[in-house]
């Protein structure tokens, strides 16, 4: 160190305070505050949109991340979301002044049946990229419940089988009918 000084400056954004600050108070909103996805079977995807409204006159970039709330913040029946990589969304969104942006969030559950019949919770965090001493952050509660074990996969194969049998039977009847008709002529 060059020398010791009696003081160190803990001037929080002094420059910003001396110059006319573009942001006197954070002014943005997010909707909806909570999203509940029910009956999402393993191997399937669900999508929804969040709306970020920038009420400031200038453009701002917002950062999106996931956050696993502490246990006391989770409803008793809901466990921590197993893997935040199952959620996909843009991690940065620029919103022009006095306008809004829709952010598409996709939830994809892996196809393993061990993920069936679960109830999870995770929060999505939305905060401006620009920082002052105080910065506002919003959490969106995302509640995800997966469908019952194997339900979708098994019934899906039943449908195919049943439709196949019907088609084959109708085809057989048709052939039989036309052959008989030809013979009678």
């Amino acid at each position: 160190m060059k020398r010791q000084s009696k003081y160190v400056w803990l001037i929080v954004a002094l420059v910003a305070s001396l110059l006319p600050s573009p942001v006197l108070a954070w002014s943005f909103s997010v909707s909806p505050p909570e999203v509940k996805i029910d009956n999402l079977p393993p191997g399937e995807k669900a999508e929804f949109n969040l709306t970020i409204r920038n009420k400031d006159n200038i453009s701002h970039t917002f950062m999106l991340t996931t956050y696993n709330p502490e246990e006391s913040q989770r409803r008793p029946e809901r466990a921590e979301f197993p893997d935040s990589n199952w959620l996909s969304f843009p991690h940065q969104v620029e919103v022009q002044g006095n306008s809004e942006a829709k952010v598409k969030v996709k939830v994809a559950i892996p196809s393993q049946q061990k993920w069936a019949g679960k109830d999870w919770k995770i929060w999505l965090s939305i905060t401006p990229e620009d920082k002052d001493l105080l910065v506002v952050n919003y959490y969106i509660r995302l509640l995800v419940s997966t469908g019952e074990e194997g339900e979708r996969v098994e019934t899906g194969s039943h449908v195919g089988l049943i439709v196949g049998i019907i088609v084959l039977l109708l085809l057989g009847c048709g052939i039989y009918y036309f052959r008989r008709k030809v013979k009678t002529k």
Partner: peptide, 19 residues
């Protein structure tokens, strides 16, 4: 699959001052 969300609700707080 059902997705339930109240799109007429929004989170919006203002802090003043921020410095």
């Amino acid at each position: 699959v059902t997705i339930t969300m109240a799109t007429d609700k929004d989170i919006d707080i203002i802090l003043e001052p921020i410095l």
